[in-house]
Structure formats: C-alpha cells, structure tokens
Nucleic acid binder design. Sequence first.
DNA 1: GAAGTTTTTGCACGGCTGTGCAAAGCTGTT
DNA 2: AACAGCTTTGCACAGCCGTGCAAAAACTTC
Lengths: 336, 336
Amino acid sequence: MSGTRKVFASAKQVAELAGVSRSAVSRTFTPGASVSQETRRRVVEAAERLGYHVNHLARGLMRETTGIVCLAVADSDTPYQGKMLRALTQHLRDAGKVAMVFNTSGPAHHVEEALRQTLNYRADATVVLSGTPPQSLIRTCLDNGQRLVLINRDDRLVGPHNIGNNNAAAAEAALHVLLRAGCRQPALVSSAAGTPSLLAREQAFVAAAACEGVEVIVWRQGSTGYNVGADAARHLFAGRQRPDGAFCVTDLIACGFLDVARTEFGLAVPQDLCVIGFDDIEQAGWASYGLTTFAPPIERIAATVVDLVMGSGENDENRRIVFDAPMVWRSTVRPG
Amino acid sequence: MSGTRKVFASAKQVAELAGVSRSAVSRTFTPGASVSQETRRRVVEAAERLGYHVNHLARGLMRETTGIVCLAVADSDTPYQGKMLRALTQHLRDAGKVAMVFNTSGPAHHVEEALRQTLNYRADATVVLSGTPPQSLIRTCLDNGQRLVLINRDDRLVGPHNIGNNNAAAAEAALHVLLRAGCRQPALVSSAAGTPSLLAREQAFVAAAACEGVEVIVWRQGSTGYNVGADAARHLFAGRQRPDGAFCVTDLIACGFLDVARTEFGLAVPQDLCVIGFDDIEQAGWASYGLTTFAPPIERIAATVVDLVMGSGENDENRRIVFDAPMVWRSTVRPG
DNA sequence: GAAGTTTTTGCACGGCTGTGCAAAGCTGTT
DNA sequence: AACAGCTTTGCACAGCCGTGCAAAAACTTC
C-alpha cells in the first residue's frame, strides 16, 4: 500500500536473514559449489521468504556468457515465421537459453537497431530471420565474440553462419513435376520483395525451364503474401496467355493464387491448373487447399541453430548449411 | 584467427583510448548529462573504433529499470498469437523496451519457469499470453515491483492487470445473428482446452440460447485448432441432429468446420449452414472462407499493454480492461 | 586426545556501469 | 587582475554477483 515501489531482494539481504555470509548464498545457487546441507537449507528458506531470485544481469557481468540469444524477425505473424519462432524459442529454452525478440519490421534501419540492442544486452548470439544487416555491423558483432546465424538470408554476406534451404533443387523439382503433369505453360509467381531465397527459387525455376526449352510466365509484383498470389491470378487469367501450372514461391502466395483461380475464374484444380508452393505452412494441409508444396525441416533447422549458438567455439569458421526441403504431395498437382 | 574468443569492449577501454576518464564515457552515452562537445567527439570516435556498446546489463544494476519486458506465450505459430506477438514486439520496441519471449508450451511447469526467468532477468514487467501462472508466483512478481499483465487469462486471479475481450457480448451477438438468419438448430463448437476466454464464450452463448428458449448442440472435444472444427463437423453432420448454424469459439475451429461441412458433406454456406468465428485471423478474410467473425482490436490491446507496462506507478491497483470485439461481416452468415 | 585430511566459510576482489560531490576549467564583468 | 558564475571533469562509491585464497570448522585415523 505504500507509495514506494518494492524492489528486488538481493543476495545480501538473504544472507542477513539466513545469518550467513553472502558467499554462502551465492554458492547455494551455483551448481557444484561447496555448501553444507544445513546452510543450504537456511539460505533456501530465507530466499523463499524474500522471494529472492539470482540476478542474471549481474551474473552476466562475471561469466563470459549471459545466456541471452537475440532473434531478429520482421513478420512473426506470418505462418512460416511463426512456426520458426515457435521452434526456435522452444529449442532455446530446452538448451537453457533465453530469447530476446526484436521486431525489425518497418524501415530498414530497424535491423541495425536490433543488432545494436543485441550488443547492448551482451547476447551470446544473434539469429537473423528477416532483413539484411549491414556488413559493418556484422563485423562488430563477430568482433565482440558474438555468434551470428542468418536464416534464409543473403549467403554472400561474409562472416556469419548461414542456414538455408536448397531452393534450387526445389525449384527444379517443381518445374519437372509440372511438366510431367502435362503442363504446357508454366508460370512463376513471386513478389517484388526480392528476398534472397525467393530470388534463388525464381532463378532456378526459370533456368530449369530454359534447359527444357519451355518459356515461363514470370510474375513479380506486390509486397508479400496472399494478396500477391491473388493479384497474380487475377491478371494472368484475364490475359491472353493463361498458365496451366504455377510455382508460387511461397505457400501464402499459392493460397491466394488458388483462391482466385477457383473462385473468380472457375478453374478446377488440378484438372485445369496445377499449383505448387513452398514452406508447407499449416494452411497448405487444410481441405480447401490440399497444396502440394515443399517442407523445410523446421525442427532440424532450429536444432542446428541452437547447436551453432552453443557451439564450442572450435568451429568458428563460418559455415553454410543447406537443408533439403522434401516435396509434400497433396492434391494441387496431377500425378505424373 | 587466434583461439581466444574476443570479448566485449568496456567503457574503461574506451576512456583510455580517448584519453578521458571513464565517467566522461558514461556521460557521453547518458542523455542529458554534461559533456563538452570536444570530449564527446573523442569518446564517440574511440567507441566506434572499439565497437563499444553500453552494457545494459550493468546499467540495469544501477537504474531501477532494465527495459526488459517478458512475454510468456505457448503457441506463437497460431495465427492469433502470432498477430499478438507481432503487435506487442512492435509497440514495445517503439516504446524503447526489449522483449524476452518465453515459450511456455509443454507441461504446465513451463509457465512457472518462465516467470522465474522473468525475475532472474529483472524484467520490468511480464505479459502472460498463455497458460495460468500459480497465484504464489504472481505474488512474488508483484512483490518484486514487477508489473504483470495477463491477456485473456483467468480474470479471477488477483493482483495483476487483466486484459480481455468482451466475450459475453460477442457470444450473445453471435447467437442473435444466427437466429435472425433463420437458424433453427445452432451449435457451439469448442475445444476441450478450457481456456478461460473460450469458456466465457461457451457459457454466454448457451445462456443466451436458454434465454431465447432454443437448445444448443454443444461440442467440446479435441485439443485445439483446425482439427477440432473438422472433427466436430464430421461427427455432427453424420449424426441425427444436424446443426444449421454454428458459433465456433475460434476462427481456426471455424475454418476446419467449414472445410469439412463443404467438402465432405456438400453443404452450401450460408444457404444450408451459417458459421461465425472469433479472432479475425488473416485466413478468415481469404476467399475460401469469407468468415463472419469478431475482431479483437489487437493494436489497441498491444498499446494498452505497453501503457500498463510503462505505467507511472500511480495506478498500481490492478485493473481489468475489457475490449469490445466488433463483428466483421463477411459471407458465412445470411444477412438477417 | 593429537595430528592429519577434507569440507565449509568468510574476506576481498573483479567485472561494468551511473551519479553525487568537489575540484578544476572557462567566460565574462568590473 | 580579481572575482563571480557556470560548465566540465575526475574521484569514489554503490549496485549485485562469482570465485580464489586462506582461515576455520568438521571429520578421520591412530
């Protein structure tokens, strides 16, 4: 009821209440330290009474590690990033780390700010899920002994670990599956975002088509998500050259594409049109879509990230790890 | 290339390089402190060179506030929680706070652990989005001067601030809208999770129906999400008493319900069946669903949370804030 | 009971910062 | 040149913790 704000209990107070030295308190909460049964009991009791919790911030001053891992992510409300975030926070927790999440949406400099904060809070590592950090800041992070992991980012950035999907393989598989299904006029549907991994899928798809001697309708407009696919369908099917197969670089795009193709143009899938996505978001498995797509191994990716984050320090050379995203067959493609 | 791990630069090193006292460094990075133009320049330059960043952990020892806000959330890969998380991290960032995210999925004691971590890291505040923290820990957090905000949790818990939706009003509106659309046999579709807010919607819906003298088919099975709705539809429409209107306590459930009703039973919506959801997730607006639902004002909720978190300390009485979730008309209900 | 061995305890220091206080520097006035 | 008023600077301390080291305590063994 008093106006003064209560304040956290310190080890000193616990020591006084328990009638021991502060060191004894510290040792009680340090695994493997030497404390007698009796004093431990008294300390724990006093701590309980005062609601004492070790101050990890101060602990971080001593130890060389703080246990903090930063995650820089822009669109955590997107199904794919949501999954990733869930997996990462879960694996980090199980590894005894805590996750600081920085929302980097908005202007580009937010990524920079996030990286700065990561340093301010002496995070052991930083994981970048969205945006492209400037090379200079990457250096600073690395120079300060931080581990840095980029997921699906530009893999030409030098220094950090880099995790990605085998976009090229998936894109090529997509093309061949479409051709084998009898599609004559494939389309590539992407956004204007120009994310490295999206670009990789685009380019590999077009290149593979060129190899096979078929021409691809390329759509690259709009910011991102469902609406990109919807707009694409609206324009492409209203045009003269209508596609009969599409590789949408994202499941979200694929959903929009499918919806408009069916609803507004009465197309039957997969009879009139075959569609392939990428990400295997939850909605891909819903009955309305049954989307054939590629499934990045999210759990394995998250586990790998945690491995890199906790890395012994020996393998400090930056690594590039690529995961295969196996195809998930559902019902938007005619079986070859 | 050396084996020794690099380490963060400290203010002391910056001071030495700049040829000033450590206080000068500290003041340079403390807004409103007294430093001459010249020394500031030298300090900033030295800091730049060394890649120095103020250690917020040590700063947290001095100040009464650390700038850390913890978010306890279980299913961030769910569309609704994803939206909430995005909004919260964004608003917190704009308010100069950083968000620590604890994944509380799995056994119940994970919530407890998260709350403990919140104390360990001297967070200024904790926001609980999932799970029910034990009353004793709530007390401990409050006693330590933390602000505590519960979103859509059990509002009978005493102590913390409590933010929720006006579930009762929405549920009643749902019933009346269904009746006005001519539904004779309404159903309530929910999961067995028993979350407080879901329970509130259930009870209000059933109570309102009792008022009107109509009986409601109540389905309450399965853990959560799309499959709950799908299973419900599968069983209800195979039974003798088939509903012609449904209030699904969650949009995800509604999507599953709709999909199965249409796909497996050939029902036309809204002609044969009217469906109402809750949450207004992105998918509700997709062409395949066009789900009529209720939209909690996520941005306003997030802004309110941040307000409470940054609260001046005057209004320490715990508050219960309820937001109205306005109805969003789409196409799964016949216009009355 | 004495000597030797192991465990436990307290002291003091280090790690990094913000800030009150007094000394030092500067500016301008008479 | 002396002095008053203001700005800037450095010192020293506080805040909280982990840990090496040596003293104290407990326990063994003869």
